[in-house]
């Protein structure tokens, strides 16, 4: 794992930045949210995909691309979380100051 993280650090950092940006926007974004049911379904799908990856069922390059996707997605989610939390903290401090 550590080897992959070092090999792919640029891409993972990119996914993190992308997530950070999206998380930053999401706090003040007035677009349509994903319905709760869909989030649950997608979460289940994500768990299944992680299971497939852990079980090493998908062979060869497709297996690698799946691992790559999941790793990038993980960093994206972490970026989103930090971005949103940081934006929320900044916004709420601004409101309190106002």
């Amino acid at each position: 794992m550590a080897y992959l993280a070092i090999f792919l650090w640029g891409w993972l950092f990119g996914a993190f930045l992308l997530g950070f940006g999206m998380g930053w926007i999401a706090v003040v974004y007035r677009g349509k949210p994903v319905p709760k049911v869909w989030i649950q379904r997608l979460s289940v799908l994500a768990v299944v995909i992680v299971g497939v990856a852990v079980a090493r069922v998908v062979p060869g390059r497709f297996g690698y691309w799946l691992d790559l996707g999941l790793a990038l997605f993980g960093f994206y989610l972490v970026g989103c979380s930090i971005g949103s939390w940081l934006r929320d903290w900044v916004v709420s401090r601004h409101v309190r100051a106002g």
Binding site: A15, L18, G19, G21, M22, G23, I25, A26, V27, Y29, G31, P33, V34, K36, I39, L72, F73, Y76, L77, C80, S81, S84, D88
Partner: peptide, 13 residues
């Protein structure tokens, strides 16, 4: 709540 609005980033992702 915020995560329900993270989906637009999936396209560049």
């Amino acid at each position: 709540r915020w995560s329900s609005k993270w989906w637009p980033g999936l396209i560049p992702f």
